[in-house]
C-alpha cells in the first residue's frame, strides 16, 4: 500500500474539471431521488396515514438521502473512473508522476464520496423545502459525516466493479442487479419489521440497510438500540472494500 497526501492532488484535478459540469450534475443527481420523494412521499404518502406519529414523507427522506449519496458515489466511481482510465487515459499519465496508483484510486474514491455528499446535501435542502428537516444542527453535522462514510463505502464498492469491467455494459449488471434492488430491500421505502424473517436476515447483508438505519436515527434524533452495530458494519465493510478497491485497481492499472 503506497498512499500519500497526493490523494489531494487527484481530488484537485477532479475539482478543476467539475466546475464545468456543476449544473448538469446537480440536475442529474437530484432527478431520481426527487422523483422518489414526490411520487412515493407525497403521492403514496397520502394513502399511508401516520408512520410512528409522523408523515410518510418524514419516514422516506433519510433513506432517500443516503440512497442519493450511494448512487452519486457509485456512478462517479463506475462511469467517471472508467472514462478516465480507458477513454481519456488519465491514469496512464498520472502513474508517470510521483502520484502512485493507490493515490490515484483513493483520490477518485474521495471524489466519488464528495459527489455523494453534494447530492445528499442537495437532497437535504429539497426535503427542508418540503417541510422535513433534521431535528437539530448537530444532527445535520452528523448526517454530513455519515454521508462521507456512505460515499467512501459505495465509491469503493463501485471501484471494485470498475477494476473488472471490460466495457460500459458491464456496469449494468451492478446497477440493475445490485444497486437498484438494494434500494427496495434496505428499508428506504418501507420499514423492514413487517418483512418475513428470511428477508429481514437478507437485508442485514445489504450495506444500504445499515446506512438507512443510521440516517433515520440521526435525522430524527431518536437512537434505537443496536445503532452502534449498524455503524460498525458500515465502517468495517468500508475498510475492507476500500483496501480491496486499491489492490484490484492497482492490479488493473499496472501491467
Amino acid at each position: 500500500m503506497n498512499l500519500s497526501y497526493r490523494i489531494g492532488h487527484v481530488f484537485f484535478r477532479n475539482l478543476m474539471s467539475y466546475k464545468r459540469f456543476v449544473v448538469p450534475t446537480f440536475i442529474a443527481s437530484l432527478i431520481q431521488p426527487l422523483f422518489y420523494l414526490v411520487t412515493f412521499g407525497i403521492g403514496m404518502g397520502a394513502y399511508m396515514g401516520q408512520f410512528g406519529g409522523k408523515s410518510y414523507l418524514d419516514f422516506l427522506v433519510p433513506g432517500v438521502l443516503v440512497s442519493s449519496v450511494m448512487l452519486s458515489a457509485s456512478f462517479e466511481c463506475l462511469y467517471g473512473t472508467f472514462i478516465k482510465m480507458i477513454h481519456e487515459k488519465l491514469y496512464d499519465s498520472l502513474l508517470a508522476t510521483p502520484v502512485s496508483a493507490e493515490d490515484a484510486v483513493a483520490g477518485d474514491i474521495a471524489w466519488g464520496a464528495f459527489r455523494g455528499l453534494v447530492s445528499g446535501t442537495l437532497m437535504m435542502l429539497v426535503a427542508m423545502v418540503m417541510g422535513v428537516s433534521p431535528v437539530s444542527i448537530p444532527s445535520v453535522l452528523l448526517l454530513f459525516v455519515l454521508m462521507v462514510f456512505v460515499g467512501i463505502l459505495f465509491g469503493s464498492l463501485a471501484m471494485i466493479v470498475t477494476s473488472f469491467a471490460p466495457n460500459f455494459d458491464f456496469f449494468s449488471y451492478y446497477t440493475e442487479l445490485i444497486l437498484t434492488p438494494m434500494l427496495f430491500f434496505s428499508g428506504v421505502f418501507f420499514p423492514l419489521d413487517r418483512f418475513p424473517g428470511w428477508m429481514k436476515s437478507f437485508a442485514q447483508f445489504l450495506p444500504l440497510t445499515h446506512a438507512v438505519a443510521v440516517a433515520r436515527a440521526v435525522f430524527s434524533g431518536v437512537y434505537p438500540r443496536g445503532l452502534v452495530a449498524n455503524f460498525l458494519v458500515i465502517v468495517g465493510l468500508e475498510t475492507v472494500v476500500f483496501w480491496a478497491a486499491l489492490k484490484l485497481m492497482k492490479r488493473r492499472l499496472i501491467k
Binding site: R6, H9, F12, R13, M16, S17, R20, F21, E88, K89, L90, D92, S93, L94, A96, T97, P98, V99
Partner: peptide, 28 residues
C-alpha cells in the same frame, strides 16, 4: 523523469493552462 507518451493522454476536461497546473501539482 519527464515522459512524452505515445498516446495523447491530455486531460480533455481542462484547458491547456489547467492541464499544466494540475500536472505541476502532481509533482509538488
Amino acid at each position: 523523469t519527464g515522459v512524452i507518451p505515445q498516446e495523447i493522454t491530455l486531460d480533455n476536461d481542462l484547458t491547456v493552462y489547467e492541464n499544466l497546473i494540475v500536472f505541476s501539482k502532481f509533482f509538488d
